[in-house]
């Protein structure tokens, strides 16, 4: 089964459902969710490759960090 991080997807889903797009997240965006240090760092930087490797769903990555993709 593909690697899935529930905490990462929980943070991103909350933003997607509010139709929010960002280049990187703030600590406020991550409040209340227990994230590993690497996950928190990848969210702050909007690092799409790292987020994918850490188990964020690609559709959620795309919706939130749309501006960080070259295409």
């Amino acid at each position: 089964m593909i690697k899935t991080s529930y905490p990462l997807n929980k943070v991103l889903t909350a933003l997607v459902r509010r139709h929010v797009a960002k280049a990187g997240l703030t600590d406020d965006d991550m409040t209340g969710v227990e994230l590993a240090a690497a996950e928190r760092d990848a969210l702050r930087r909007g690092d799409v490759a790292a987020l994918y490797d850490l188990g964020a769903n690609p559709y959620l990555i795309r919706r939130v960090f749309r501006g960080n993709f070259k295409k």
Binding site: V48, Y52, P58, L60, I61, R62, F69, K70, K71
Partner: peptide
């Protein structure tokens, strides 16, 4: 491929 490292 959407949202993955191969997006596009």
């Amino acid at each position: 491929w959407v949202g993955t490292p191969q997006t596009g």
